[in-house]
Design a protein around this nucleic acid. Structure first.
Lengths: 335, 335
DNA sequence: TTGAAAGCGATACCAG
DNA sequence: CTGGTATCGCTTTCAA
């Protein structure tokens, strides 16, 4: 591997000058600069990132901690971050967390070992205190899709309450009175908030939601199937099903169909996330749009900004995002 | 940040000894070793990866170059690699290529700057020669989902020919005679091979596939919709549609439906990949299973193996994977 | 079994 | 403007 010294020698200058050229620093004659640039080109010089990082104690890249790349929701996060990253020419260091406290912790620790100053973390399993501690010691530490009051300037989150409320309201306005709800029992702090939103709406409308009508399962297609099977086995009556996410909703629809129930004729279904799945199901899924990719972008930008404590740092914009309704074909108007 | 020297001082030993402990090296008294370990724990020592890499000229992590994380197919790749990576305690450095020669090239260059010795690359746009050059200079360079004869020991690929052949055969055996095919015009070297497999089967069965019946579009849901629209606009007669991948197939189905055509009653559809999409569509999609996650795992393992040129390196196993048929509900038997 | 010291490649300060 | 050089944190001979 060819180094800065080789270039210096070839150009008859000192390594210091070469370094200046590399970093577009001042204090180099323009002819010298050109000559050095040419030589770097010719010799195919590539700076050693580790040497750079060792000196500057900084790592330009963005580290990200995600649960599971095969879940489109998380993939969308990665994609959003990646866009910011490539625009700013920083790189992504990926590290799956998978909802385990231990794994998430280790992922962050590893990132720290690599001296990442920018981290976008989607943590579900770690406690508030643990995360606060990280935020205090890592300048560019940002939480994606989670809200912690004490470090809210480091959080990019969704109004989960509104999300639940919106689902309930849409279903309610279509005249449904008997509901069932599918939630996830994976550790996702957002779940309860969403449920609260639903319940508040129902209560206001004098609609009762018995505990037996709430089913917990995996936040996946399979989870949706299982949950519906359980619901049906209980012999509960309901005309509408509110699902934690699109994957569950689509799984639910498939299971309804297997039982000879038609959607939306017999049962209305609403999902949440508005991922590609929602468009692909037939009929297309009515759902709540979660701007997760934009949220991820924002998180990455925020992280980058935090790590460079230059300007008026105090402008803490509100990093809360709002969901919106996407009406498609799975909710029937029975008013 | 606390360093090796701090530990050395606290333990009353030399940095050298601490280093030995870190790397589980020999030549350290067992009591000393324990003491040092304890102190490292207490002080919360974390090795500086950059300093390590600078010395050893090695980067333990696996670099991966992918086109687009939001495409479940690529996400599955990432996931497979990630599994191997975390098992071996190496990390992923992600860098999207997006089918552009320039971008893919830059991604690999960046990885090289970081002194990655392990790279799993899913390249579509770069030429054989460019890739061969990389393979020669990077010990752990492995190509995923691409085959280049000259460096086949560095390739993990799918039998694309068989893939196409299998689709054609299944449709053929169900009695279909009039076909249409959806391919992608994105640069994916595998496309033509797949088409060849189809055509060979059709020819052998005296089934003609006019050029007008082959439609090129994006390899996505939207691409499928567009392609079907074009096909329908041309007024072509066909009873079966063979799609490059599941996303296109599902898009196609949606468009058929919009035109009042039922699947599979009026038109049979077969996809390829067997991603989650295939299960979610209603009716569930008949498709070809591509073991992409296993392929990705294999690629990661191969890369790790190549980078450590210790053992009998010469065992070049066959890294070709084979597709398999998954019958579900979108192909009608009309024999 | 331990320690001293020479780098790894780049940066940045201080002289000139 | 340019060059010399200490330094970043760690690994790895070479001596002791």
């Amino acid at each position: 591997m060819i180094t800065i010294k080789d270039i210096a020698k070839a150009a008859g200058v000192s390594p210091a000058s070469v370094s200046r050229v590399i970093n577009n620093g001042p204090k180099v004659g323009s002819k010298t600069r050109e000559r050095i640039k040419t030589i770097m080109q010719e010799m195919g010089y590539q700076p050693n990132v580790h040497a750079q990082a060792l000196n500057t104690q900084q790592n330009e890249a963005i580290g990200i901690v995600l649960a599971d790349l095969t879940d489109p929701f998380f993939a969308a996060m990665a994609h959003g971050i990646e866009q910011v990253a490539s625009r700013k020419n920083v790189q992504i260091f990926m590290n799956s967390g998978a909802f385990k406290q231990h794994t998430e912790m280790k992922a962050i620790e590893t990132l720290r070992e690599h001296r990442y100053t920018n981290m976008v973390v989607n943590s579900a399993a770690l406690s508030d205190d643990q995360l606060i501690k990280f935020a205090e010691s890592i300048p560019g530490f940002v939480l994606l899709n989670r809200y912690i009051e004490k470090i809210k300037s480091r959080c990019v989150w969704l109004d989960e309450y509104m999300c639940g409320h919106m689902m309930a309201q849409h279903i309610g306005e279509k005249g449904h009175k008997q509901m069932a709800v599918l939630l996830t029992d994976e550790i996702r702090p957002n779940t309860q908030e969403r449920l609260r939103g639903m319940v508040d709406y129902f209560t206001a409308q004098d609609i009762t939601l018995p505990d037996t009508n709430i089913e917990y399962s995996y936040a996946s297609y399979e989870g949706g199937e299982i949950a519906v099977q359980n619901l049906l086995a209980k012999g509960i009556n309901f005309t509408a099903l509110l699902c934690y996410n699109d994957a569950m909703a689509v799984g639910a629809i498939s299971m309804f169909k297997a039982h000879g129930l038609r959607v939306p004729e017999d049962i209305s279904v609403i999902g949440c996330d508005n991922l590609i799945l929602a468009k692909c199901s037939i009929p297309k899924l009515t759902t709540i749009n979660v701007p997760i990719e934009q949220m991820a972008k924002k998180a990455a930008e925020l992280s980058l900004k935090l790590a460079k404590p230059r300007l008026e740092q105090n402008i803490i914009e509100e990093q809360k995002f709002t969901p919106s309704l996407v009406e498609r074909g799975t909710v029937k108007d029975i008013t």
